[in-house]
Design a protein around this nucleic acid. Structure first.
Lengths: 166, 166
DNA sequence: GTAGCGTAGTTGAAGACTGAAGTATTCCGC
DNA sequence: GCGGAATACTTCAGTCTTCAACTACGCTAC
């Protein structure tokens, strides 16, 4: 990982701020649990419904919007996705008949991704599976205090990470 | 996301245990911060050193072992990687001259991945970059109490996730 | 010793992600 | 109203990941 020095030797520029043993424990616990949880949730969902978590997020985002449609860029931001990635994903969802593209009336450059009725139905079928998975692997494991702490940490990190870096 | 019901309608099987508003906030904060942090750390590292976080983990794992070598399966487990994924990755690292494969003496079926001196040097160069990134985006943002909570939550989840599911 | 089975690891094809380059449209100043 | 810059999105080529074969070796029992 990030980690302690691979050797004990001094380093080239300013001496790196290596992690001490406790920091490493904390960092690895966080990293591994994140990776394993994401993986587990994605596999649960994909295995049962055939919808990956990435696709699921797109469907959810669209479903929550008035008219069940959204500009491609806005949707990409909402799903923490690059434009390119979203464009590919929406093409796949179009092939499944769950989303269709529509030129944006106000801006001829823009496209709207629109959730179809089939897409909405697929989402309705998948949602209970996913929520159960999140309950089982996350909320059922944590005390209310831990959930509150998790939110606090998450929001703290988000305030930092969302801000564009200079 | 996982989430509240896409419609308000009742559901097919046992009524799903939907997340309430606070739970959703907590869940999304956790998920988004995880994704953004991983993404940021990976980009920082890849951009500066040309080593992705996945490859970095492999090099670190090997470097921490006596003889700087490890069985493929053990390495895969350690890196939360599938056998296949690790096998491909090690092939790429071999092309870079950072790792080499060696048949395992005790078990003719097995292979050892061995970190070369060039690989170790690459890791030594990358480590300060990565640790600085982890400091900046994670530890510098959190209070000692939050770090402790993060570790507590991570370890709690790991105890659940590491256990094989029946 | 060899059949049958399990384990270790690799491979190949298909899908997904990335960054850079490409196309189309709008915005802006003159 | 027109040239140039900016914006919105897509496409391309390359890399990574996954899943399902597949190869090769070891173990056990006959």
């Amino acid at each position: 990982m990030p980690v302690s020095s691979p050797s004990a030797g001094p380093s080239q520029v300013a001496e790196p701020r290596w992690l001490d043993a406790d920091e490493q424990k904390a960092w690895r616990a966080w990293l591994y649990s994140s990776l394993l949880l994401q993986d587990r949730l994605d596999r649960d969902l994909t295995h049962v419904t055939g919808i990956s978590h990435a696709y699921y997020e797109i469907l959810v985002a669209l479903s929550e919007t008035p008219g069940r449609m959204m500009r491609m860029s806005e949707l990409a931001d909402r799903c923490l996705s690059s434009r390119s990635r979203l464009s590919h994903a929406v093409s796949r969802l179009e092939e499944r008949g769950w989303v269709r593209r529509q030129v944006c009336a106000e801006d001829g450059r823009g496209q709207l991704a629109v959730l179809t009725d089939e897409g909405f139905a697929a989402l309705e079928a998948a949602a209970p599976v996913h929520v159960e998975s999140v309950r089982t692997h996350l909320f059922d494991q944590l005390t209310p205090q831990q959930v509150e702490n998790m939110r606090d940490i998450g929001e703290t990190l988000l305030r930092h990470l969302d801000a564009p870096t200079p």
